[in-house]
Simulated scan of single mutants.
Amino acid sequence: MTNNPATISHLPFGDTEPLMTVEDLSAYLVIPVATLYKWRTLGEGPRGIRIGRHIRYHRSEVQAWLAARAEAVA
């Protein structure tokens, strides 16, 4: 995950949480980038944010999605 201070300082509402790219999330979840895009078209996967033509993810949203999936399996 890139920690570009310029990017962090421009997040809305004073949020200082770095956003994850699709590639960051792919590496974090150890799944292909194509799977993330497919999940997005199906309305599955963690909630992403469209910024122009790019998709970004809040780490807290990813963690919440993972926790919800863990609860669904248990």
Rank of each mutant, 00 (worst) to 15 (best):
R53G: 15
M1T: 13
T41H: 10
I8K: 12
L19M: 15
G14N: 00
D24H: 08
L66I: 15
A68F: 00
K38E: 06
A34Q: 12
R53V: 08
A64M: 03
N3Y: 10
W65Y: 06
I55S: 05
Y28Q: 07
S60T: 08
E17V: 05
E23R: 14
S9N: 11
Y28T: 06
E44I: 04
V22T: 14
T2R: 15
K38G: 03
P46T: 04
Y37E: 15
F13G: 08
H54Q: 14
W39C: 11
H54W: 04
R59M: 08
V62R: 01
P5L: 10
Y37D: 10
V30I: 03
M1Y: 02
V30W: 08
H58T: 07
R47H: 02
I51C: 04
G14I: 07
G14R: 06
L42W: 03
H58M: 02
T21R: 04
P18H: 09
N4Q: 02
R47K: 11
A6G: 06
P32R: 07
K38M: 09
T41L: 09
V33T: 15
S26M: 13
H54M: 05
P12N: 10
P46M: 05
P46N: 03
R50M: 12
N4G: 03
A27M: 05
P32E: 12
R59S: 12
S26A: 15
E44S: 01
I31M: 11
E61M: 04
I51V: 15
Y37Q: 13
G48D: 00
T16S: 14
W39L: 03
Q63C: 13
G43F: 11
E23T: 15
T21N: 01
L29M: 14
G14Y: 00
I49H: 11
E71D: 13
R69K: 13
R50E: 12
F13C: 00
I55D: 03
G52D: 06
S9M: 12
L36G: 03
L11P: 13
F13Y: 14
M1G: 14
G45R: 06
N3S: 09
T16F: 10
P32G: 08
Y57Q: 05
S9R: 13
H10S: 09
L66P: 01
W39N: 10
P46L: 00
T41G: 07
Y37V: 04
H58Q: 06
R59G: 04
I8Q: 08
E71W: 11
S9L: 09
E23I: 15
L11G: 00
A6W: 02
E44Y: 02
L29I: 06
L42Q: 14
I31F: 02
V30C: 11
G43A: 04
R69A: 01
E71H: 12
Y37R: 14
R40H: 10
R47F: 10
P5N: 07
V62C: 00
L25K: 05
R69H: 13
I55E: 06
H54F: 12
